[in-house]
């Protein structure tokens, strides 16, 4: 009798342990590929110009926002990063509606709101391109840890702009939550893991 009761206890414990572990891995613990920031203060709220008028970061409360700083004459890192982000949006499927990618121009002299918008939406229809006065761009870029600098006479089209190309993810409550590295790895696994990170943030 005693041994049967013991069996039940052990079985019960085993079930609890397994369920607990599964629940922990499934619902509580998620290993992010991006670097997590637990910022006590909300992300810097900016207002910049889109092709359809002024846009504030806080307009997108309730969505995951991904910030990317780049420019339309950018020969390498910008098109590849945006193409990868478009791929991530595809992996997100229905959840992609809850995600807003904002491309902010670090070349406000050449990128008008219309130019940067048509460039951004070329990669994915919902991407928004933003620009502003040089002072506005300087402030926003500085606040988000983005370095950028013109290199005069370095290309046939005039000049290139060196810039930090990390991706900054802002959660639906408006806090900076994740950073993805400057050069997002090319492989599919990484892009899928990025999509999982975003999904996790949307669900929690």
């Amino acid at each position: 009798m005693a041994s049967r009761r013991l069996l039940w206890v052990v079985l019960g414990l085993a079930v609890v342990l397994v369920l607990g572990t599964v629940a922990y891995r499934r619902f509580l613990y998620h290993e992010f590929v991006g670097t997590v920031i637990q910022s006590p203060e909300p992300a810097f709220d900016f207002e910049l110009m889109s092709a359809e008028g002024p846009v504030r970061l806080s307009d997108f409360r309730g969505k995951v926002v991904i910030l990317f700083f780049g420019y339309t004459h950018c020969p390498d890192v910008c098109p590849t990063t945006l193409a990868k982000l478009a791929k991530v949006m595809e992996y997100l499927d229905n959840d992609a509606q809850q995600v807003q990618v904002l491309m902010i121009s670090v070349d406000p002299d050449r990128d008008s709101p219309e130019v940067v918008q048509s460039y951004a939406s070329h990669f994915y229809p919902s991407f928004i391109g933003l620009t502003g006065t040089p002072e506005q761009i300087q402030e926003v870029a500085t606040k988000y840890g983005i370095y950028y600098k013109k290199r005069e006479g370095t290309s046939e089209s005039g000049y290139l702009v060196d810039h930090t190309a990390s991706l900054i993810l802002i959660d639906p409550e408006g806090y900076v939550k994740l950073i993805f590295p400057s050069v997002v790895p090319e492989d599919e696994e990484y892009l899928k893991a990025m999509a999982e990170d975003i999904r996790y943030i949307l669900r929690h």
Binding site: P40, I168, V176
Partner: peptide
């Protein structure tokens, strides 16, 4: 140590006028 927030991006110059950046 907590991960507080992003440090600013910057281009500053040293005494010789060489740029020193957040990168």
């Amino acid at each position: 140590l907590p991960r507080i927030r992003l440090a600013p991006g910057f281009t500053l110059y040293d005494a010789q006028g060489n740029p020193v950046t957040s990168e």
